[in-house]
């Protein structure tokens, strides 16, 4: 982070960068490094035993599987919603556009109890699903519903600006060359949207894997069945098993860092593919 030796006209470089680095270290870097240091207290064998215990592995499967599924659902419907918001006019559009951000603004605990109320056996939606033999609340399906809710804005908001910037001329050119609507979507529009779609997918997935508040109310939290990884950390903490909690946290952090790198790469790709010129 050493400053290049250049002549600076504007003031305040040293003080602002200094404060930025100090604050970043105090609030984020030092605390996060505590996780890794704490993990080293465990031997490799012990670490492996903790993170590969059947109950813990079951939580990975559940968390990762459902997060992938939720992100996929959000990719499909998020694209459709963004498409409708950009390309069609319909009554109430501004309201819909504004409310898309609700999952960003609504506290997760509130979302959790509201979804539980909706999907419980006597809830507005649950009462129609129950006779069909579909139970959502307190089942893994409930977790999926919560993860779809909290991940919904990501795809919409990454795809929407790209769709807005899309030149109508591209589609007109493709049409004048004889392409049908579906072909244009498949060969012209989708390749342009792809990096943004993947970014939105990755963001939604990353958020879903770490989500806690909205899930625990609707999940049922039954070991081996409907227990998510973040809950596992809390459970270990409540048993004062700090090392165990930290080991699982390390696994999750590694995944987070990987995702962060992937997302950064995807965003660079997005701006490359949609930028006017390089």
């Amino acid at each position: 982070m050493a400053a290049a030796k250049t002549f600076r006209v504007l003031p305040g470089f040293n003080i602002t960068l200094g404060f930025t680095l100090a604050y970043l270290s105090l609030i984020v870097l030092i605390p996060l490094s505590a996780v890794f240091l704490k993990t080293t207290e465990l031997g490799l064998d012990q670490f492996w035993n903790v993170v590969s215990a059947p109950r813990v592995v079951a939580t990975y499967k559940l968390s990762f599987g459902l997060s992938l599924l939720a992100a996929a659902i959000n990719t499909v419907f998020g694209l459709m919603l963004a498409w409708a918001l950009v390309r069609y006019s319909f009554p109430g559009k501004r309201l819909v556009d504004a409310l898309v951000d609700l999952p960003f603004a609504l506290p997760t605990a509130v979302a959790g109890i509201a979804l539980t109320a909706l999907y419980a056996k006597n809830g507005w939606i649950g009462q129609y699903l129950d006779p069909l033999g579909i139970q959502v609340a307190f089942k893994p399906l409930g977790i999926l519903v919560a993860l779809v809710f909290i991940g919904l804005p990501f795809v919409v908001r990454t795809v929407q600006p790209i769709l807005e910037d899309l030149d109508t001329e591209l589609e007109e050119a493709a049409t004048s060359l004889g392409a049908r609507r579906w072909q244009i979507f498949r060969h012209v529009i989708l390749p342009i949207l792809l990096p943004a779609l993947l970014t939105g997918f990755a963001l939604a997935f990353a958020r879903a894997v770490g989500e806690y508040g909205s899930v625990i109310f609707i999940a049922g939290n039954i070991p081996m069945v409907s227990e998510i990884t973040p809950l596992m950390i809390i459970t270990k903490l409540e048993q004062y098993d700090y090392a165990g909690a930290t080991a699982i946290a390390t696994v999750m952090l590694m995944l987070s860092f990987t995702l962060l790198l992937v997302i950064n790469g995807l965003q660079a790709w997005t701006s490359k593919r949609t930028g006017r010129d390089r």
């Binding site: 996780v35 770490g210 809950l231 946290a249 997302i263």
Partner: peptide, 10 residues
């Protein structure tokens, strides 16, 4: 990108 639970844990 860090789970809120881990944010508390640290």
């Amino acid at each position: 990108s860090v789970s809120p639970v881990i944010a508390g844990l640290v």
